[in-house]
Design a protein around this nucleic acid. Sequence first.
RNA 1: GCCCGAGUGGCGGAAUGGUAGACGCAGCGGAUUCAAAAUCCGCCGACGCAAGUCGUGCGAGUUCGAGUCUCGCCUCGGGCACCA
Length: 852
Amino acid sequence: MSRYEPSQSEAKWQTAWNEAELFAARPDPARPKYYVLEMFPYPSGRIHMGHVRNYTMGDVVARYKAAQGYAVLHPMGWDAFGMPAENAAMERGGHPKDWTYGNIADMKEQMRPLGFSLDWTREFATCDPDYYGQQQSMFLDMLKAGLVYRKNAVVNWDPVDMTVLANEQVIDGRGWRSGAEVERRELTQWFFKISDYSEELLSALDGLKDWPEKVRLMQANWIGKSRGLQFAFSTKDAPDGFEALEVYTTRPDTLLGASFAAISPDHPLAKHLERHDPAIAEFVAKCRAGGTTEEAIETAEKLGMDTGITVRHPLNTEVELPVWIANFILMDYGTGAIFGCPAHDARDFEFATKYGLPITPVFEPVEGDYPAAEFVPLKSEPVRYIRGFAGNEIQTGEDGVASAIAFCEENGIGQGVTKFRLRDWGLSRQRYWGCPIPVVHCESCGVVPEKKENLPVALPYDEDGTPIDFSVPGNPLDRHPSWRDCACPSCGAPAKRETDTMDTFVDSSWYFTRFTSPGAPTPTDPEEVAYWMNVDQYIGGIEHAILHLLYSRFFARAMHKTGHLPADAIEPFDALFTQGMVTHEIYQTRDEKGRAVYHLPEDVEDGKLKATGEAIETIPSAKMSKSKKNVVDPMNIIAQFGADTARFFVMSDSPPERDVEWTAAGAEATSKFLARVHRIADEIAASEAPADPAQDTALLKATHKAIDEVTRSIEGFAFNKAVATLYGLSNTLSKSKAGAEAKREAMKLMAQLMAPMVPHLAEEIWAMLGGTGFVISAPWPKADPALLVEDTVTLPIQINGKRRSELSVPKDMGKEEVEKLVLEDEHVRKALDGGQPKKLIVVPGRIVNVVI
RNA sequence: GCCCGAGUGGCGGAAUGGUAGACGCAGCGGAUUCAAAAUCCGCCGACGCAAGUCGUGCGAGUUCGAGUCUCGCCUCGGGCACCA
């Protein structure tokens, strides 16, 4: 008899695997390759249950594919640049570099006991000078290839701290530290020309068959291809140089419903007026208050100001429309100017109602009257045009738009234009802890790329021998005494380095290619990258559905264009899986002022605080977060139950794409189950029961059914169903009266099926039953189709769609014979009461429905 | 505000348009035990004595048949370009 003691056996097997170097990825021409990757973590310092879930999923896939004979690449690294390191330095002193590398060491120590099949020899952090030096090298190649350029763009500006704020540092329109009202300010910044690839990134989505449909949809909407009309209003009383006002509209069919024109506060005309008219300057300044997010702009109160300028209606030059400046017009989309048709646009309606502008319907419902507020039917819906100017009176919005564009083109009013919502990717960050942008500003030569032999342009660690001080707001690179000053790479004259660093999305846009050759002297090694790319299975959070994944798709194309990736790797992720979060209830009490005080789950027992016995309020589950203290430390779970319990629990119950609720009871139940499996295996190992052909066959059939189900579940990322199947198989095994030999074989197969999820226990059982080698190196079992077929099936009999009876028949019984038997059924005879059914539906092998 | 999801017993969830609730948790009953823990066996959507009726967020619809498909809502979650 041996007991289940994970604390001993888990460490033992991990040592054995490491000694056998099982997880080092090696190209092997004799086998197909498989690259499985989980989104690499930000080194916050502590792993959390979300990490455990994410990496367990990847590990299940990696181990399963290895058992199937693939040469597997399963690497791990660190997304190590970013704001938290700088924030930590500001709040607690110290240096971002020390904080980050310390966190990496801590997290690695926490990940080790989980027994993931990771190839740690390929590990790197994006803040390693070697990594970001290669990134700088690619940046220079992309600059040369015309994929990078500079232009002005708005940032959140904190007028008190005199610093740029990230969106998350703007809370209700105010800076998080100073509390000052944030304003939008323009800076010259670096951009990737992702817009060159708008069409390509959109159309290539169709090829991503193994991506979730919702992610493809989100990306398609984000890219936002639209067909519309661009035309110029001719202006009256406008300043010189503004004789025409270019507008873009996706609803040219509503042109005769135009009641005003509106321009963005950032439109060149608005900027011109701002310089000459104090009232407009004041208004525009008001528009610029608040953060830069689309959400902030769209939910802000609609503000407008009449400029006094008018434009002539292109279809009827007698009609003049006023030109307003409006805070909800985005300069980044279209031309930064629109015409407003309040009758058929909710935003225009709100604006027109507020400022008393006319509302002129262009179309109405085919049946019924024009509604009280705006009327915005689906474009695919037919409507009756009462102020149409092109095509039929009754047509869909789509047709109306198409004929309006055709009409305007014929009459020289404007052109049909395709536009995209997708904007170029601004990569400049006015921060220290990021990859320096490797260019130099020279007074005579302008912007000069750094020479490649001078890369990496490394971040300075200290100033004259003392670590950089982060207690002062702003970017330390800007005020560094020696780092900033340099010689111009072109003319050698004194020059200044660019002090902006790169968006951390750049770091995460190519790390998956670097894993194929982490030590290469170039960004990628052609042979290695050609062998390992693409990522066969990518796993990460749904929150990355748009930005990270879209930027990576673009970057792969840019890398191809600059010779760093082969043509067949421009869609880097063959299959994508997006997993849900790990959630937990929140426990709180109130302090004397009635404010919420949160408590860790481990400090709570039976609805009371362990320490004081004070009753706690329980708030429904939410994503685990430190601020709400609803976190369960994986280390505690591993210490108490072992890694396999933690791994198995996060795979149980909830489907992986959905959020999973962590419950202490669930973890304990999982641990009990694993102990039970261990006990059953132990009993089987000692058993001497003689063979029993009937029982042995029944067990063999059940085992093969489980092989089939677990295999299909893992293939379909339905790990919760694989777990349910294993529960079922363990019950079958414990109750089976089969002989010892048959049971040993069944148990060994079960160990193989469990191995991807609970590898340590599986090894233990495999060894106990005399399996050869490691269970994880044993080839994945195949279900024998002959053992999966059932001879008889139970057909439910429905009467009018409701289940009333059932019928047991041989699997392949013909339709007519089944019908005959159905009509003889007691319930059916009773319901028919001597009559004939209206209809008798027999779906062979599935169901019978008698319609009366 | 805009885009994308999700909603099934007390709880987590299962169900190629075909027996709703597999499997697990909690709960209840029993066995074992001096007793307990552990373990094992059984019951377990609601109402009803029963026959049965009702049940997948709400309201319509398509279908012989809807948790599943369509339309309109509600609630919760993710994203909205400088959190990662």
